[in-house]
Nucleic acid binder design. Structure first.
Length: 465
RNA sequence: GGCGGUGUACCCAAGCGGUCUAAGGGAGAGGUCUGCAAAACCUUUAUUCGGCGGUUCGAAUCCGCCCGCCGCCUCCA
């Protein structure tokens, strides 16, 4: 079975086949590190991680690049306000971003290039565009003349004659020939950071970095470029214009865009003041893995309305999965195989993959796992799950874990000697039918975050949360 | 104004012309099990898919109109 993904360029589902016949090369638009990124941003990054993981699950070697934008107007302004250099200012947020990624189990891309480390290459790209007649200069800034690129608009389908640009053009921009023209190189402004270059002193326009760094690490043509829907226009449209005009080669095969996360039915954004960072959520008691589960459980091309109730629901679902894995893990080796269940596990694997193959339909993939859980739980009750079945099921969930990153069974080890003794003592109390003491101990442990479950086979314990 | 998306039970959500009197998850109610719990299981909560028409032997799924919501067209994941 093959992985089909929705391509914004064609508005169709298409099969992913690496351009070079082997390795999937993927570029993801990363964060601008002028502040903590919010969970709306993380919806996109978690999606990219899911895509990354599933591509690898499908057996493709993957080269994954994610940029970090560490210079732009906001950064320059904020760094100045804070009395810090650009890198001093951005370092801490870049660092925080890496930490948050880890918390959400987002795998680190193979290359994470920083814009400020690629100024030279960006200048080269502008020079190339200038040589080919795609640029013009105004007041020391270099602009891209979109009328020189006939394909302009092919990604976002913008109709250049019918839009509101005219009402929205601000005073700053009317030196441009066409309001849609965009800046490649911004002339130095007094008192602001700049780089010397053959283009004159200044700094790169935003779109430039992604063209430059993606092509540097992935080649002129590569397989996947992804980001949030808001980047379709103008960011990605401009990237296409820059890259294809410079190389005369097709830039990207698949454009993949994830929808927004909304809060109170509005886009989460800093300007709306309705954002939550991951850290905010953790402070409010959310388990980051529940957050990840929630973000993944809704299809990436559908808007997701964030609520704390949603996090709770995700947490419950996750808890159920973890309990299940614990129960399955207790099946003894010697119990004979149940061939029906073997069959069912195979079917589940098929459904799981079929779901994800279909443009990452996570709901369908997850539903398959839940069905298997239900069937298995019934068989567990009547002790009809064999040691082999246990391994098959745990194996399947471990595969699912490679993709979703939230399914591993907890390694249960009692670190605390005192807790171990209390559990022992309670076992003895129950044996002697001293239920008052047994319940007392149970309450005591509950207060310390340990939940006990008495089963036929003995007492099982787990941590809350 | 242009472009795109979306409306399925109390909540989240799959569904891509028949197998839908509609997956899966959460929550609630009743029950089984249990010393009591917890977990698990069983039953239960949409003859119905925003509304109205149409196409079709057949529509949640296609078409038209209407209503609601969201996004992009400006920095933005």
């Amino acid at each position: 079975m093959s992985l089909k993904l929705h391509n914004t360029l064609t508005s169709e589902l298409e099969e992913l086949k690496p351009l070079d016949g082997k390795t999937v090369r993927m570029y993801a638009c990363g964060p601008t590190v002028y502040d903590h990124v919010h969970i709306g941003n993380f919806r996109t990054f978690v999606f990219q991680d899911l895509l990354r993981r599933y591509i690898k699950y499908k057996g493709f070697p993957l080269l994954h690049v994610m940029n970090v934008t560490d210079v732009d107007d906001k950064i320059i302004r904020k760094a100045k306000e804070a009395g810090l250099s650009i890198s001093e200012y951005t370092d801490r947020y870049a660092q925080a971003f890496l930490e948050d990624m880890e918390t959400l189990r987002i795998e680190k891309p193979d290359v994470m290039p920083y814009a400020t480390k690629h100024i030279e290459e960006m200048v080269e790209l502008v020079l190339k565009l200038r040589d080919k007649g795609h640029t013009y200069e105004r007041d020391g800034s270099i602009y891209y003349r979109i009328s020189t690129f006939p394909d302009y608009g092919k990604l976002s389908k913008v109709d250049l004659c019918n839009n509101r640009t005219a009402d929205r053009t601000d005073a700053d921009e009317y030196t441009k020939e066409n309001p849609r023209d965009f800046v490649l190189w911004k002339a130095k402004k007094e008192g602001e950071a700049y780089w010397d270059s053959p283009l004159g002193p200044g700094r790169p326009g935003w779109h430039l970095e992604c063209s430059t760094m993606s092509m540097k690490y992935l080649g002129n043509s590569f397989d996947i470029h992804c980001g949030g829907v808001d980047l379709v226009f103008p960011h990605h449209e401009n990237e296409i214009a820059q890259s294809e005009a410079a190389t005369d080669e097709p830039f990207v095969r698949f454009w993949i865009h994830s929808e927004f996360l909304l809060v109170d039915s509005d886009k989460m954004s800093k300007s709306e003041g309705n954002q939550y960072t991951l850290r905010d959520l953790i402070k409010r008691g959310c388990d980051p893995l529940a957050v990840r589960y929630l973000l993944q459980s809704v299809h990436y091309r559908k808007q997701l309305i964030f609520t704390f109730e949603g996090v709770d629901q995700a947490q419950s679902a996750l808890r159920r999965i973890h309990d299940f894995l614990l129960r399955v893990g207790e099946v003894p080796d010697e119990r004979p195989e149940n061939p029906d269940l073997t069959q069912k596990v195979a079917e589940t694997r098929g459904d799981f993959q079929a779901g994800l193959d279909d443009d990452l339909n996570t709901s369908a993939a997850l539903a398959a796992l839940f069905e298997l859980m239900k069937d298995t739980n019934i068989l567990l009750e009547s002790q009809e799950v064999g040691g082999i079945n246990r391994d098959q099921i745990l194996g399947l969930f471990s595969e699912a874990h490679q993709v979703f990153a939230v399914f591993e069974a907890e390694e249960l080890q009692i670190q605390d000697q005192e807790i171990a003794e209390l559990i022992e003592e309670r076992k003895e109390a129950r044996r002697q039918r001293d239920f008052q003491r047994a319940d007392e101990i149970r309450d005591l442990l509950a207060a310390r975050g340990i939940v006990l479950e008495d089963t036929k086979a003995g007492t099982r314990w787990k941590r809350t949360g």
